[in-house]
Design a protein around this nucleic acid. Structure first.
Lengths: 224, 224
DNA sequence: AGAAATTTGTTCGTATGTATA
DNA sequence: TTATACATACGAACAAATTTC
């Protein structure tokens, strides 16, 4: 016998596939839902927590439960717990990040919008003019983020964001170490210029070279 | 003010990072947890549903709540809802699958174990000797699964499994259409032989060629 | 084998905090 | 400001599955 609180996940999934629920739409009130599905309010609420965790539900006290699109947090949770529980090492994390960015680069050189090209060059300028390590981290993040977003593949983007969150939360010092290490060798701006210009000019070769160089330094400095 | 039921997620995460909870371990009883964290049992249960959904918890009635490693279902849910709600098209799904498999191939030719090499050749033999479309689907799935597993990158593997589940559930007919289409052109065994032998012999070039060919046919036949 | 204890699954009732008109 | 609707939270109770003795 399936657990009762899972019924509501099926219910919402069906309503979505049937086109009756779209992002932003409000669900029935919890009491109403409970009656409609023939279960108690507490069980309904447990089911709503599942949906909330998946990222398709936003519960607002006093207002209601709304269909939402917020998959990054869930993806982050999944990757984070995988990292913590499966004994996944740093190597696998950075390897996966390189794979994603390389895939993204291939697509980005073909698909980057003018707006994205403009923005990535602006962030590069910011990086080159930054005066503190903390500032550089911010611009570094932004450049990689735009690069991946320019792939216009939602699965790729969500995975990258989650991975970036994971690294921020559990391997926080790593990015700073890398920035400092690369800065001390004057390679920080060089590699990021390659990445940004590759996207802006649609130059795949330069992009891949930039990534290889960049991740070479990551290998070198990731452990501080 | 943070919602109360999220406290337990933090609690479990901390216990894991502190090394006090490992996969298979049993949590305190719900009533005990409620007292320990200063909240009601209903709220505890809502929090446990979050953990269950992430895939780190397995609730067994009458027995207890156990730390678990089951990320595939969550990942499938996330990708599925993204597909349903974000209006992601078939193109993006197959594109992402090709990206994953290409990345996996690069790693698989270097890392496949002897056991995996043996198994992928066995599945190929099964495919070549299969007599019905349904059988061929099973062997086709197995070959791709082993290929990805041979990458030995857990993030890659989990994403692929989720994507495969998504396709099985929401685009069910697709794989069958492709198998039938490729079979009618006698290309089914050819492409899969390339994939299997690439992994077994560590031949990257043949592997990439096999994938390009394979996904060329997918483009051709995916819409039936 | 069977009874008792333990634990999760589910329900109801109630009270409180929050948003909205 | 007030009234209403709603999510949040708590406590108690019983059902159902499992474990223990």
């Amino acid at each position: 016998m399936e657990k009762s609180y899972k019924k509501i996940v099926e219910y919402v999934k069906n309503e979505i596939t049937a086109g009756k629920l779209k992002p932003g739409d409000k669900l029935m009130a919890e009491r109403e839902l409970a009656e409609h599905l023939g279960m108690s309010r507490n069980s309904v609420r447990e089911g709503l927590r599942l949906l909330e965790n998946i990222g398709v539900l936003n519960s607002q006290q006093g207002s209601g439960n709304y269909i939402d699109l917020n998959f990054n947090e869930t993806m982050t949770d999944v990757l984070s717990f995988m990292y913590l529980l499966k004994g996944i090492g740093l190597d696998q994390v950075t390897e996966y990040r390189l794979l994603i960015e390389r895939d993204a680069m291939k697509l980005a050189v073909q698909r980057a919008t003018d707006e994205q090209k403009k923005m990535i060059m602006e962030q590069l300028k910011g990086l080159e003019e930054a005066e503190t390590e903390e500032e550089r981290v911010v611009f570094d993040k932004a450049i990689h983020k735009i690069l991946v977003e320019a792939s216009h593949n939602d699965f790729l983007i969500t995975n990258y964001e989650a991975l970036a969150n994971l690294m921020d939360r559990y391997i926080k010092s790593m990015r700073l170490n890398i920035i400092i290490g690369m800065q001390s060798q004057n390679m920080l701006e060089n590699t990021h210029r390659m990445l940004a210009e590759a996207v802006a000019k649609g130059d795949l070769e330069k992009g891949i070279l930039g990534l290889e160089t960049h991740f070479g330094y990551i290998e070198q400095y990731k452990n501080g």
